[in-house]
Design a protein around this nucleic acid. Structure first.
Length: 538
DNA sequence: CTGGGGTCCT
DNA sequence: AGGACCC
């Protein structure tokens, strides 16, 4: 018999606020919001009770609620740290570590194996011929090895809310597995609250989308189970735009396709078209979805309307696939301003790389291959659209023998500024409201091994790619010996100088820079004044 | 006025 | 390189 997965969706309540309350418990009692620039990105439940909204403009909220306390949340470090801690904590409880993170505050847990193991234990208690399991209390085991690790739960009842308010016809098969899932969900949430101090909302169902939507239906600090026999009824009342993975664009395309040819006067406003799942299901069909959205997306979204979500839990890797730092401004119009911002962003980016890509010994766990610079021009395209340019990332960022200052200067002048020139092209005048620096294409470093020869044989090619010629020439010869020494110690690859046989003459200090405007070479510290010269001159 | 991040697909 | 989606 085909068994459905058991998926738990967890969502930390008002996450940024919870983190701030963790640092400052006084906040717990008052209405406060976390702001980023001119917007309230989230607020605690005390504030929500007053009517403060998420994503509300800060000025509007303060007009309406003059006493609302405001915390600046533009620096995400605290939230990122807390997010990682909670993710690891949850992951340690889930067999096989099958936990996927979505944003900073949501997790998907595939607990199918844990449920199946415990269902087998429950079945051993089953009396043949009896219509249901005879036990009202059951010890759910959280460890295969240690039978004393786990929790007791009443297996004849569901923990938390029911998505449609009704119980399933029977408590066997997949339904029983979801009932166990609800108790597991409750236990995991209790552990997270008791040990980490964070409340959460939980959803339990047979796939990620249904679990996520179930969890969102009762907040905060609650959980909800959605049995598959009620999934369609549950979904049918929702607007399609509220189904995860159906965004504004897809919704618009779908409704356009359905209402194509109807009187546009009557349907100028989105609200005039019925976008409920029920309505869309009955007015459209799979072929219409595929025709308007393409085979892949059409197929996927049509399935979603029917509670079918084939995407399993994809365990989030320890290393991110990209790291980016950005800032927004009213207006940035001069190279010197851009230069200064890129400098500041580069320090943050380097710090992030040290935190996310290094092990405790200072060895690199992964090497980004590409640097990407993104901007948002003031008023071209729709709001939020970005343009970007990328190039290979100078390997000096992996150096442990250069100062942070040196590496940042190098990055700004040799990487970000040239990319910025490429971005603005021939235009001498620009107006930028966002700058984002990112390192992407992060290649996982080979596992540490004492077997140097096999390691070299495998990594020779990529290591050669990783080392750009400029940097190779600039490394002082004393560093070269040091790096090779570390290499032999198998601390993980820094630079590969093997195969580079000829002796290179290194300059004492080769830190000259070229001005991106006129190409003149100068020391980095002179660049700022030089840029100002250009500003005044033009 | 309209964050600061992320992932995956095309 | 951009665009869709998520938070």
């Amino acid at each position: 018999m085909l068994r459905s997965p058991v998926i738990i969706a967890l969502d930390w309540d008002a996450f940024y606020c919870s983190v701030e309350e963790h640092f400052n418990p006084e906040l717990r009692k008052i209405a406060f919001a976390v702001k980023q620039k001119g917007i309230i990105c989230t607020c605690n439940y005390v504030a929500r009770a007053l009517g403060v909204k998420k994503l509300q403009l800060l000025v509007d909220a303060l007009k309406q609620f003059p006493d609302l306390a405001i915390v600046n949340g533009e620096d995400l470090s605290r939230y990122r740290d807390a997010s990682k801690e909670l993710w690891y904590f949850a992951r340690d409880m889930v067999w096989g570590g099958k936990v996927e993170r979505l944003g900073f505050d949501e997790l998907f847990l595939d607990v199918t194996d844990m449920i199946d193991f415990n269902i087998a234990l429950l079945d051993n208690l089953h009396v043949p011929g009896a219509s249901s399991h005879p036990v009202s209390s059951f010890f759910f085991r959280m460890s295969k090895e240690d039978p004393s690790v786990g929790f007791s739960c009443p297996v004849l009842t569901v923990a938390g809310n029911l998505a449609t308010g009704s119980l399933p016809g029977d408590f066997r098969g997949d339904n029983l597995r979801l009932v166990l899932g609800s108790h597991l969900c409750h236990y995991i949430r209790s552990q997270i609250l008791d040990i980490k101090g964070y409340t959460s909302s939980g959803g339990v169902s047979i796939n990620k989308t249904l679990a996520k939507m179930a969890g969102a239906s009762h907040k905060p600090n609650q959980q909800t189970v959605l049995f598959p026999e009620f999934a369609q009824d549950f979904l049918d009342t929702y607007d399609i735009g509220r189904i995860p993975w159906i965004g504004h664009k897809s919704k618009s395309i779908i409704l356009d396709a359905i209402y194509k040819g109807t009187d546009s006067v009557n349907h100028t406003m989105e609200g005039a078209r019925d976008g409920t799942v029920f309505n869309v299901r009955h007015l459209a069909n799979k072929q219409l979805f595929i025709n308007s959205l393409g085979q892949s997306a059409g197929d996927k979204l049509w399935d979603l309307l029917h509670g079918v979500d084939q995407t399993g839990v994809q365990p989030t890797p320890d290393m991110p696939t990209q790291i980016s730092i950005e800032d927004t401004f009213k207006s940035l119009t001069s190279l010197i301003e851009v230069h200064n911002v890129l400098r500041r962003l580069s320090y943050s980016l380097l710090d992030r790389m040290y935190i996310d890509l290094m092990d405790s010994d200072g060895g690199w766990l992964g090497h980004p291959q590409t640097a990407r610079l993104s901007t948002r021009p003031r008023s071209t395209g729709y709001y939020g659209s970005r343009i970007s340019r990328s190039d290979s990332l100078p390997s000096i960022v992996f150096s442990n023998s250069h100062s942070r200052d040196y590496i940042v200067d190098y990055l700004v002048d040799r990487c970000w500024m040239p990319l910025f020139s490429k971005l603005i092209g021939d235009a001498k005048i620009f107006d930028i409201v966002l700058l984002n620096v990112a390192v992407i294409n992060i290649e996982k470093a080979p596992a540490k091994s004492s077997d140097i020869t096999s390691f070299l044989g495998k990594k020779k090619h990529t290591d050669n790619n990783q080392l750009d010629g400029v940097h190779r020439e600039e490394l002082p010869v004393t560093k070269r010996a040091k790096v090779v020494g570390e290499y032999a110690d198998s601390k993980g690859p820094r630079f590969n100088f093997l195969g580079d046989d000829e002796d290179v003459i290194f300059e004492e200090d080769n830190y000259g820079e070229s001005c991106v405007v006129c190409g003149q070479r100068m020391m980095s510290f002179a660049l700022e004044a030089h840029m100002r010269f250009h500003e005044l001159g033009d």
